[in-house]
Design a protein around this nucleic acid. Structure first.
Length: 459
DNA sequence: TCATATT
């Protein structure tokens, strides 16, 4: 039914309203289709905007790729259709070898001669430092997996080259994904130089610090920072700055304070908390339970909503005086606990059991655009921010339809920007007003309306 | 620095 060397194609940039039956006519013209499947979310069944396509004949796939890939744009899409071998087809990485333990003086040609006996070589490159000196390793790409395998079998460990400290290494080169993984492991090991407990302690200190602010503690916090990881230090120092700036623990500091984030009244002064020792706090709701409404904080219904417009956290509370200073401090801390540890990956709160108790917010749906004017673009996100932290951060401003951090697929690293979509433009505006310029670590968020689809198109 | 999605 299908050729042995058939290629499974990945089809990207297809409108989410097109199903298999709609797609078929587009692709049939290049040959008989063996299988065509729209990719859907495993749990929600949601159309992911892409598909897999296998033709019976390899040649059909090649023709379709040539004719369609990046060649036309389907209605409603802002980028051209993608037609290329699926990742599962192993983009030719299975014929590329990494060669280690070469001598420093070996040139491309020397390596090539060594590998020539095993097949036709497409590519042969010794890796070099910027100054041109060999790194003692190379990539060699054969035309087929079998040839590469033959070279491994014969050459790996077979000899020790002059100047090398160990016998020759010949193995398949890392795939793009493996490289990403490796990079992440390196980052992780960097952080692990400091004991894992140090990180948690840092989070804990910062937390208690923010709840109960005393000058002495602020000083010790900075002193302690010297022993924390760079990330924890940034977080700690940042929090300390915040505490100094604003006794109520609110961490938003817009560059242009269009809407100042301050307590609404001088008569009810939050700094009362300054002298309060660390008490038995109501358990923080942590990341997953983060809510702009303080009712969730102490388990009691609040008589008034603290956020009246998503910006003035304390605006409504002065009249009844229902919240004691500690509760105020705590309500303010929701910002801290939500944004801070999350921002730095320090999500293990001082009360980790809370995490297991509070069920994670329902699985965030695929990225979706809201109506025009409801979608915001956020740049300068902390590297550690994921969809969920982004969601938490913007939840106070309205119904979030979607929160998506962009991730480099090869490395799994955040690209430090993302989108949040609300169900109405007012929420989006409120979020922009409140969060544009929001300082996290050394950076300030840039929050603005997402560029409309047709922007930047000359015609 | 503006929705790239891989059963």
């Amino acid at each position: 039914m299908k050729e042995a060397d058939a290629i499974k194609l990945f089809i990207g940039q297809i409108p989410r309203n097109l199903e298999e039956k709609d797609l078929k006519p587009i692709f049939e013209q290049f040959g008989k289709i063996y299988e065509l499947t729209v990719i859907k979310d495993k749990y929600t069944g949601m159309h992911k905007g892409c598909a897999f396509l296998t033709y019976c004949a390899r040649e059909s796939a090649l023709k379709a790729q040539t004719a369609l890939h990046e060649q036309k744009t389907l209605p409603g899409m802002n980028r051209p259709i993608q037609v290329k071998p699926a990742d599962s087809e192993g983009r030719g990485e299975d014929r590329k070898l990494f060669v280690g333990m070469l001598g420093k003086q070996q040139e491309d040609d020397d390596v090539r001669k060594m590998f020539e006996p095993f097949g036709r070589i497409d590519e042969c490159t010794v890796l070099r430092a910027p100054d041109g000196t060999s790194k003692g390793c190379a990539f060699v790409k054969f035309q087929s997996h079998a040839e590469a395998q033959a070279a491994i079998n014969s050459l790996h460990g077979s000899r020790t080259l002059p100047g090398a400290s160990s016998s020759l290494v010949v193995k398949f080169a890392d795939t793009e994904k493996e490289r990403g993984l490796r990079r992440m492991q390196q980052v992780a090991s960097q952080l692990a130089v400091f004991s894992p407990m140090t990180l948690n302690l840092g989070a804990y200190n910062a937390y208690t610090q923010a709840v109960s602010i005393t000058l002495v503690q602020q000083q010790t916090l900075v002193a302690q920072s010297a022993y924390l990881s760079p990330i924890a230090t940034v977080a700690a120092v940042q929090m300390q700055q915040m505490a100094a700036l604003n006794g109520n623990g609110i961490i938003a500091t817009p560059i242009t304070p269009i809407t100042p984030i301050t307590p609404s009244s001088g008569t009810n002064t939050p700094p009362a908390i300054a002298a309060t020792p660390v008490p038995a706090l109501p358990p923080p709701v942590g990341i997953s339970g983060y809510s702009p409404v303080p009712a969730a904080a102490n388990g009691q219904p609040a008589s008034e909503t603290i956020y009246t417009n998503g910006i003035h956290p304390y605006q409504a509370q002065s009249s009844a005086g229902v919240l004691d200073p500690l509760q105020q401090a705590y309500a303010g801390m929701q910002h801290y606990t939500a944004a801070y540890p999350a921002a730095y990956g320090l999500v293990s709160t001082p009360f980790p059991q809370q995490h297991t108790l509070v069920p994670q917010q329902q699985q965030q749906q695929q990225q979706r655009e809201g109506p025009e004017g409801c979608n915001i673009f956020i740049y300068h996100l902390p590297q550690e921010f994921t969809d969920s932290e982004l969601l938490q951060m913007f939840l106070p401003f309205g119904n979030v339809i979607s929160a998506k951090v962009f991730v480099d697929r090869a490395t799994n690293q955040s690209k430090c920007f993302g989108f949040v979509s609300f169900d109405n433009p007012t929420s989006a505006q409120t979020a922009i007003q409140a969060m544009n310029g929001f300082q996290i670590g050394m950076k300030r968020l840039k929050v603005q309306l997402k560029r409309p689809k047709d922007a930047n198109r000359p015609y």
